[in-house]
Design a protein around this nucleic acid. Structure first.
Lengths: 240, 240
DNA sequence: AGACAAAATGACTTGACAGTCATTTTTAAC
DNA sequence: GTTAAAAATGACTGTCAAGTCATTTTGTCT
């Protein structure tokens, strides 16, 4: 009860400073293998034997690098979270075009990242499925991705308000509202895979047009570069 | 490979028609206990012994009602999905007020259901976490909740367009856009629990105002009954 | 090359839990 | 009240995977 839990303080066993090149190389292999297996099977169903085999290493070797399965899981998930937002933030910082274009491109980039890397796409599943067991991973994700992403989109909004492109909306307080359709699509994919296809191209454009309609200062701004043919009365059920 | 998988065809062992009152009663107890345990621990970590104990029944008894753990899981999840949308659909069918009010109340009701029942709130977690292992559950959820919900909100939109309250927007094709902030909040709760609090009251009202701003025919419609004090330039970081 | 240390291995131990089934208890029928 | 069938029980078995550690392999220094 009193005192500290040493497992919490030290996930990796060695201080990573004094390590041979071979060791750092193997660590990378192990993390890559663990990432793949955990993403494919989740925490419970992933087998350390499989991870070891995929990394080209014996099971016992894993324990030279990580204290136990949980430590390996945390390290693997952290490695997925780490580099998530770098490019987006950079782009927004040194953007010079219109805020409308900036917002469009930022959202499109998020969709792009969502649909490319397989393991990255499974990150959210891991955080939801096993998040209660590893709350510090959720906190890390919050600080590294959510908080920074929220701040970034708020900056885009302010820029657009300054240039007269956007009006004041509740999205200033909750930029989540701009990003929610991305999250909804992510959930759709996680729940249904490809069993209930959705026209992602159209969905993305619909999202952009909808959001711009909600925040644009004048209706005309939102209309530029919208869907080639946005049927005013679509066939019912076409989106399901 | 050829032939059929009998386990898939028959989840419950008995045809539920010829059953004593005592048996139906016990079945209900078992499902309730299973629901609670699965919601609390997920499929892998839930222990049949605990479910049995919670239901006041021996472990072996479970196997008189369900073929195995997977069958019990499916039955439990289905029982959560089943009654989800009844009230919402009913209300929309016999609504007579303005479409704006109808949309507002419908969304508020979804938030209300999200925040009341504990097991129901965990449903999405189960579907995401263990969905790949039980795709038929995901399909069932899609047909019973998503498809019907989508259709219902599309009806609300059309009603509003007919009365001149709403304009044509991409939300007609993808009503998901209206609901996405609900899903985003759900994910927030699933990932962070109460570790990163969000002012849900304000969030809900922000959502309503934002969405109405996106679809209202004239700006004035959206403004009615909005937040008491929607600060145009909120303190940065106030929403995290 | 030899000798010592560090790293890696994988057969083994351990614990946990899904599923079984011989036995006991309950219900219903006469 | 007796008896037969149905329902319920929980000790037991088999399996599977996390974690250990005595042994082997690899690397380094003289």
């Amino acid at each position: 009860m009193s005192g500290q839990n040493p497992e919490q303080l030290c996930d990796t066993l060695d201080d990573s400073s004094h390590r041979s090149a071979r060791q750092r190389e193997r660590d990378a292999l192990i993390i890559a293998a663990a990432t793949a297996e955990f993403a494919a099977a989740g925490f419970e169903n992933a087998r350390l034997e499989d991870i070891a085999q995929r990394a080209g290493v014996a099971k016992g070797t894993l324990y030279l690098y990580y204290a136990d399965k949980a430590a390996l899981f945390k390290a693997a998930v952290r490695s997925l979270i780490q580099p998530a937002l770098a490019r987006l933030q950079e782009r927004v910082m040194l953007a010079d075009g219109s805020a409308v274009d900036l917002l469009r491109e930022s959202l499109r980039q998020i969709y792009r990242e969502m649909t490319t890397d397989g393991a990255r796409r499974e990150l959210v599943r891991l955080l939801i499925a096993d998040g209660r067991r590893f709350p510090d991973l959720g906190d890390f994700y919050h600080d590294e991705v959510i908080a920074k992403g929220t701040a970034t989109f708020r900056m885009i909004l302010w820029r657009g308000i300054a240039t007269g492109e956007f009006r004041h909306t509740p999205a200033e307080e909750f930029p989540h509202l701009l990003l929610a359709p991305c999250i909804a699509l992510s959930n759709w994919k996680l729940m249904f895979g490809d069993r209930h296809p959705l026209d992602v191209e159209r969905y993305v454009e619909a999202h952009l047009q909808f959001v711009l309609g909600a925040i644009a200062a004048s209706p005309t701004v939102a209309a530029i570069d919208s869907l080639p043919a946005t049927s005013p009365a679509p066939t019912p059920g076409s989106a399901v």
